[in-house]
Design a protein around this nucleic acid. Structure first.
Length: 272
DNA sequence: AAATTCTCCTGAAGGC
DNA sequence: TGCCTTCAGGAGAATT
């Protein structure tokens, strides 16, 4: 579940640990995650260098270090934390800082990424085409409405497209559509401008609330200090098929949109 | 069973 | 009708 709130929680937790500290050693124990790990380049470029920034763009983490950036994506099962004990299974990368702190990248399913970017990250192929940050000023009703125009794609699929807006994964897409009262399968082009405005507000609201709760822990996700996130207690539709809607008591429904589960209330989120 | 997102492929739909 | 382009959606990538 690392969606935007989870990655932001990890960033905020690790920033005071990383920033201003020097990387002493990097050990890599897997040849590749989603892509091959450029081991020699990472070691050469970052060892003995100070980490000066820790940024998040969508679900990507960027450590400003030396003359470039370490890029990390947590995929579906990735965790990034301060390692306390011995190395465990699926601990693929371990940074040792000059003060002795060890940072571990752990990812059983290996859908994550660990790459090196020379110089600025804004033009890197993985980042250059990303849509606006959902909590930033550039994400507004105009922007969403422009992307909906002429598109028959389901609105849930559209808001999960990182080229439209970053960071909205399956859980928060479902929750935002519920708050906005929009059926997940509605063709994007049928949304009125007012629907779009409500959806933008709902996306911001649900992401902000989740960040306050430290993210959503279903199974694997932990904050960088090991504690779970508590937004699962606030979920209205995600994972609740068959249970009563908290607003109208109608059983929550589940439909398959693409290859993803789409949970919704058939009454609060009527079609059309 | 499945939280992520890339690339590649196929078939449908739209423009002219 | 037919050709061409774009769009939509599915598979596959790794693993507990």
């Amino acid at each position: 579940m690392p969606e935007l709130p989870e990655v932001e929680t990890i960033r905020a937790g690790l920033a005071p640990v990383l920033i201003g500290n020097r990387i002493q050693h990097l050990a890599i124990h897997a040849p590749k995650l989603r892509w091959p790990i450029p081991v020699a380049q990472l070691q050469q470029e970052t060892c003995n260098q100070i980490i000066h920034t820790l940024e998040r763009r969508g679900k990507y983490l960027l450590w400003g270090c030396g003359s470039g950036h370490i890029l990390i994506h947590l995929g579906m099962s990735g965790r990034l934390f301060v390692q306390q004990g011995a190395r465990a299974a699926h601990d693929h990368a371990i940074w040792t800082l000059e003060n002795g702190v060890r940072i571990c990248l752990h990812d059983p399913r290996r859908f994550g990424a660990l790459l090196w970017i020379d110089g600025a990250w804004q033009n890197h192929p993985l980042l250059a085409g990303l849509g606006p940050e959902p909590l930033g000023e550039r994400f507004d009703a105009d922007h969403l409405h422009a992307h909906c125009r002429g598109r028959r794609v389901a609105i849930k699929t559209l808001i999960m497209n990182p080229r439209v807006v970053v960071g909205v994964g399956n859980i928060y897409a479902a929750e935002a559509l519920f708050l906005a009262g929009v059926h997940p399968a509605r063709a994007a082009q049928t949304l009125s401008r007012d629907d779009g405005a409500r959806l933008v507000r709902a996306i911001r609201q649900v992401l902000q609330a989740a960040i306050v709760q430290g993210g959503t822990t279903l199974r694997d996700y932990r904050q960088s200090d090991g504690t779970p996130g508590y937004f699962a207690l606030h979920l209205n539709v995600y994972g609740r098929s068959g249970e009563p809607c908290r607003v109208c008591a109608t059983p929550i429904a589940l439909l398959r949109l693409g290859q993803r589960s789409a949970f919704f209330c058939p009454r609060c989120q009527a079609e059309g």
